[in-house]
Design a protein around this nucleic acid. Sequence first.
DNA 1: AGTACCACCTGACGGC
DNA 2: TGCCGTCAGGTGGTAC
Length: 261
Amino acid sequence: MPELPDVEIFRRYLNRKALNKKIKDVDIKNSKIISAAKTKYVKALRNKKINSSKRYGKYLFAELGKKNNLMFHFGMTGFLKYFKNLEAEPQHGRFLIKFYNGYYLAWNNQRLLGEVKLVDSIKGFIEKKNLGPDALSLNLPLFEKLIGGKTGSIKSALMKQELIAGVGNIYSDEILYQAKINPASNCKKLKNKDIEILFENLKKVLKEAIKYKADPDKMPDSWLLTHRSKEGRCGRCGKGIKHQKISGRTSYFCPRCQKKS
DNA sequence: AGTACCACCTGACGGC
DNA sequence: TGCCGTCAGGTGGTAC
């Protein structure tokens, strides 16, 4: 799930469910996903409230106070779940925040590829990770500048978090599909017009995905995401969707609509 | 600079 | 039924 649109949906969920509620305790069920002693998490959270939240790229920050933020990174299988009764607890709740009102907020994650981290400065965290600008904050000149100097495939450039924060395997495919650009195209070979179209579709896909609650079932037939499988057919031309490894990740595209530049 | 692997983890799925 | 290989929407490291 968790690319920019998914994480933005998690952020809104967190705001809706867990803001301004006093925290009673923290239950960390797996220490692989934390980077400091459990006691530090308890100390940072107990009797505090989440005042606000921020998202940068695929990272979510719960703000509990000045220099007191909890960063959630979701890996490939993470999500948040707010619940009351323990029978409603998701199967892989690894990090549980318990509120005085009896509810819990769980950071659920089947695979342990992810992290929940105490962060004093969000800005400092972003700098340390060397993240590029958040994909939704981009403007065309900046996008041209970021993509322009690259010599690799456009797909790998879109997914590179140090270049642009927030786009992963699924949405890079979707953006390229809607822009009708082949994922294996070399950045150098793209024309200015291509980059402009790509930029427009980057914004459009991410924003609309958020409107669809990052839920593929809600997305229209004209999106690749609804056909993104080995048996899928292009919603535009009906030709079979092709898949190919590009920069180590399986990419899906329409070989007819997305000619290589 | 870019790429090709490997690693970290768990679980679902298909083939035999 | 059970075992096995493969694959999965992320990131980080190493080696070429």
